[in-house]
Amino acid sequence: MSKNILTIDKLSMRFGGILALDNVSFEVEKGSITALIGPNGAGKTTVFNCITGFYKATSGALTLHTRQEPTSINKVLGQPFQLDDIFKPRQLASRIFYKMFGGTHRVNMAGLARTFQNIQLFNDLTVIENLQIAQHNTVNKSLFAGVFNTKAFKESEQASIDRAYELLEVFNLTADANRLAGEMSYGQQRRLEIARAICTNPEMIALDEPAAGLNPNETEALAKMIQMLRTEFKMTVMLIEHDMGMVMKVSDFIIVLDHGEVIAKGTPDEILNNPKVIAAYLGVDDDEVAA
């Protein structure tokens, strides 16, 4: 069993003529809180979209080590057919299977959940329903049981509601359980999105700018919550964040991205004193850094 939960090897992503990510490689250690930082446009969200399966990487290998087995993110998104498939029927069958039934959702099913920079909630559904939808893969989906409202179905539904309330308690949202998600405040929506991601029982969670738009008090509370994700829920956390105070406080490990390349990796202290990082943030000429 690897001690890393996620390994990224030479990830590149090209949009038309633009090389958004260039040979990005890093690992995320199991049980850690890892931050991905960098100036605007550095490619942080692109990295997130690649590892959570929203983009298919142009090249590179992305592997998750969750649920006691490695999962190739490239594979579950569906790969183009290769010539040697003809001789390897098993490989061909798996390719066809993932072409048909693969996709972004497989990454979540493998145990990596995420939140978004622009909050993505089901605004016209209630908070509880938002959390129930996240349990789609675990509830009783039998058509028969549902139509005839059997005992097993009722129990499964109630269990999903109870699970939702447990999480609302943790995220201090119980009072809003039966409100529409869209009518809550921004900070509440951020918390709900994290709670909803946890509902899918992930082993790792990727938070894209969780503190964006929060006031200092809310950011403080968020930092505690992120630490709680590790202690209470035993999750590995990876986050993109611009609030350096918070990043330095919560993370064990930091990866710095600039112009689609990893320019530094290390503990917060190492990053804080890295000249390349300072240059990237303060905008020093490239040749000066080299010197």
Partner: peptide, 10 residues
């Protein structure tokens, strides 16, 4: 987008 991120095969 949210659905796909929650493990649902759209």
């Amino acid at each position: 987008i949210a659905c796909r991120s929650l493990g649902m095969n759209h």
